[in-house]
Design a protein around this nucleic acid. Structure first.
Lengths: 154, 154
DNA sequence: TTTGAAATAAATGCTAG
DNA sequence: CTAGCATTTATTTCAAA
């Protein structure tokens, strides 16, 4: 799945990762091409799937969900159907931010945001351990989340 | 830190989380207000920090980083200075997507994307375990990442 | 692929309710 | 806080290189 990307593409990607709402005019000026060119490149990057989406990110604390946790989920059966079905359900849990399917001691890692500790408990009891295929969960409180520098290092 | 948000605000947030590049005209039509009103609301949501940023999301596989992993980092000392200094360094590791500071058995969870297994090994050796305060790491391969439904459930 | 310039579309500023 | 309208700004289209 690797796509051929030149320096202009990488500059566009870096700019849009930083500010996804940058105007095309500003983008063109920043990467040094005509506006029609940057518009063309951005469209190509979206159509080819290199840019998967452009989304707003929210302050979940301001939205009343200040408590973040990681829930490590271990299964009792690794039957393919069971695993995939559970994945679909975990992704659909209210408050689930991201769900990773991983190898190793755990099967899934859920990053969740909730309003209160009680809500976290209920989330786990009502939406995670309620599934018979879940054998064990382990929950870690998240103190802080920070974005890393990503893969666009130059 | 909770902010008073009405239904219009929540509808705007949901729309921009889905498509952060939606035009203001489309947003106004979707939430049922005048364009000048939705523009005003969006600006207020950004200025109040409810919308923290709008960013492009990339297909890291297409960018040549198809391998994702979670690196669980445990420290030998929990001196405040050590912890904060290390956090700064982990966030700055090339390929680091997100770094969580957590409570429990681990101290940090790093979500990283790399090109090859060898690169993952080098990342850990050169950027993580190289710090004397790091006592142990444990690495889990990530099979798949999916977004959850988030906190805007209605 | 890239570009400039024209045509279309959208955002902003201003006024008032 | 909301809306309508005029002005300014941005995006899209397209023929040409």
């Amino acid at each position: 799945m690797p796509v051929a990307l030149d320096g202009t593409d990488l500059a566009i990607l870096a700019a849009l990762v930083e500010d996804g709402r940058m105007t095309n005019a500003a983008l063109a000026a920043r990467v040094g091409v005509a506006e029609s060119t940057s518009a063309y490149r951005v469209r190509a990057l979206r159509e080819s799937g290199v840019i998967t989406s452009i989304n707003a990110r929210l302050d979940l604390g301001a939205l009343g969900h200040p408590i973040h946790a990681i829930i490590r989920v271990r299964l009792g059966s690794h039957n393919r159907e069971h695993v995939y079905n559970l994945y679909d359900k975990l992704v659909d849990v209210p408050g689930a931010l991201t769900v990773l399917h991983v190898g190793g001691n755990d099967d899934f890692l859920m990053h969740v945001a909730v309003a209160t500790p009680g809500e976290l408990r209920d989330l786990i009891l009502e939406h995670v351990t309620v599934h018979p295929v879940v054998r064990q969960t382990e929950t870690q409180l998240v103190f802080e989340v920070r974005d890393g520098r990503g893969v666009l290092h130059r």
